[in-house]
Amino acid sequence: MRKRKWRNAVVTAAWVAVGTAAGALGAWQLASSDSDGAGGAAHSRPLDEAAVRKALAASTPTPTSRSTSTPPTPPTPTSTPSAERSTVRFTGGSATVECRVDGTVRLVSWSPADGFHIDDDVERGPGAVARLEAEPGDDDDQPDLPYEIRCAGGTPKAKVLPDRDDG
């Protein structure tokens, strides 16, 4: 019995020592990282306007002398810069849509609402219209909801169409 009490006291003392050491190490790290105001810790003080300008000036590359024979190549865009993305919601779900300057539409992604799934034969575009069909999960009494999505004035509009499968 006496041995057990001794072991419990040693284990408790070890836990207290580890906890104290961890707390002291954390306090030291916080104090040392914020001592110059630029320690990079998440709790660092926000920069004032002068400090922001100084940091921007330091990160801006200085112009170098270039050969004038080869102009710099512009970066290749990964998506159409003239496309405005927005979300359109409809009974069977929602879709993220790009409305392009030329009036075409492109489906970027879509998500079904609870109790629905989106049929596999989605017409993403780009084109005058994009199409998808929201189908009810287990309810055969509820009709499929085919949608046509167009962009009007840069805003996507979803319109339910008559179900083509009903004959």
Rank of each mutant, 00 (worst) to 15 (best):
R4K: 12
W6T: 09
R7F: 06
N8K: 08
A9P: 02
V10G: 01
V11R: 02
A13M: 05
A14S: 01
A14P: 01
A14N: 02
A14M: 04
W15L: 01
V16I: 15
A17I: 04
G19I: 00
A22I: 11
A24G: 06
L25F: 15
G26Q: 09
G26C: 08
L30F: 04
S32V: 12
S32E: 14
D34N: 10
D34K: 06
A38M: 09
G39P: 06
G40D: 10
A41M: 10
A42K: 10
A42P: 05
S44W: 03
R45L: 13
A50Q: 12
A51C: 10
V52Q: 05
K54W: 11
L56F: 09
A57Q: 15
A58C: 06
A58H: 11
S59T: 07
S59H: 13
T60F: 08
T62R: 07
T62F: 06
T62W: 05
S65V: 08
S65C: 00
S65Y: 00
R66L: 02
R66I: 02
S67A: 08
S69W: 08
T70V: 15
P71S: 14
P71I: 04
P72L: 05
P72R: 03
T73A: 10
P75Y: 01
T76L: 07
T76C: 03
T78F: 05
S79W: 07
T80P: 08
P81F: 01
S86E: 08
T87K: 02
T87C: 00
T87D: 00
F90R: 10
G93W: 07
S94I: 05
A95D: 05
V97R: 00
V97A: 04
V97S: 03
E98H: 09
V101Y: 10
D102H: 04
D102T: 01
D102K: 05
D102N: 11
V105H: 01
V105W: 03
L107V: 08
V108L: 03
W110V: 02
S111W: 13
S111Q: 13
P112D: 15
A113M: 00
H117W: 07
H117R: 07
I118W: 01
D119H: 13
D119I: 00
D121H: 08
E123R: 12
R124F: 02
P126R: 07
P126Q: 10
G127T: 04
A128R: 14
V129C: 11
L132M: 14
L132S: 12
E135I: 11
E135C: 11
E135N: 08
P136F: 07
G137M: 05
D139P: 06
D139Y: 05
D139F: 03
D140V: 11
D141M: 12
Q142W: 00
P143E: 09
L145R: 09
P146D: 07
Y147P: 02
G153S: 12
G154T: 09
A158K: 04
K159S: 14
K159T: 14
K159Q: 15
V160E: 09
V160T: 00
D163F: 07
D163M: 06
R164H: 10
G167K: 06
G167L: 13
G167S: 11
